[in-house]
């Protein structure tokens, strides 16, 4: 059984549901989910900031949970569902979190924004009425160098209020 496994193990077919659409690709097994999304499927909204799980720019939702896509091998995600920033907008309408980021000046250079928005979206999914501290905790893995997080936190709290209204 062990020897049988050997010949096919450098490459593998990976099937992912990305933003609701099925994507299939033959990938080298050492490819990260981040590189597969960016290079193969052109979801370049998922950013490369540090490649070591420190900055959160590559955050995507894997089966709804935020993860650093730079730390996950694409083969490990096989069969699972991925939401990237490109998948939040529905029928030409921004997600309430995206809308709040735009309207509250929470975006400057924008490089952290996709990851930041996805972390915030996931927070509101599991906790629709977070406290400021809970917002800060949820985005602590998304580094931003432009904003000091002030307007980002404002935007997430506003999105929470907006969703309830």
């Amino acid at each position: 059984m062990v020897t049988e496994a050997k010949p096919k193990t450098k490459r593998q077919i990976v099937t992912l549901t990305i933003n609701g659409d099925e994507h299939v690709s033959l990938v080298k097994v050492n490819t990260t989910l981040l590189d597969l999304l960016r290079e193969e499927f052109d979801y370049t909204g998922t950013k490369k900031g540090c490649e070591l799980g420190d900055c959160g720019a590559c955050t995507v939702l894997l089966d709804g949970e935020p993860v650093n896509s730079c730390l996950i091998l694409a083969v490990e995600a096989d069969g699972r569902s991925v939401t990237t920033i490109e998948g939040l907008e529905k029928n030409g309408k921004l997600d309430v979190v995206q809308e709040a980021f735009v309207n509250h000046g929470a975006i400057q250079c924008g490089y952290c924004s996709p990851g930041m928005i996805l972390s915030s979206r996931a927070l509101l999914n599991r906790n629709p009425s977070p406290t400021e501290r809970e917002v800060r905790d949820a985005i602590a893995g998304n580094l931003c160098r432009c904003t000091g997080y002030v307007k980002i936190v404002e935007a997430v709290l506003a999105a929470s209020a907006e969703s309830k209204a």
Partner: peptide, 24 residues
């Protein structure tokens, strides 16, 4: 950055996993 190449093994059982680890 690149993850160095390797062979990817996906045992279905704990016993199989132990066997692979024992072998390699």
């Amino acid at each position: 950055m690149i993850v160095p190449e390797f062979d990817y093994l996906t045992p279905q059982t704990l016993n199989e996993a132990c066997a692979l680890l024992g072998e390699y």
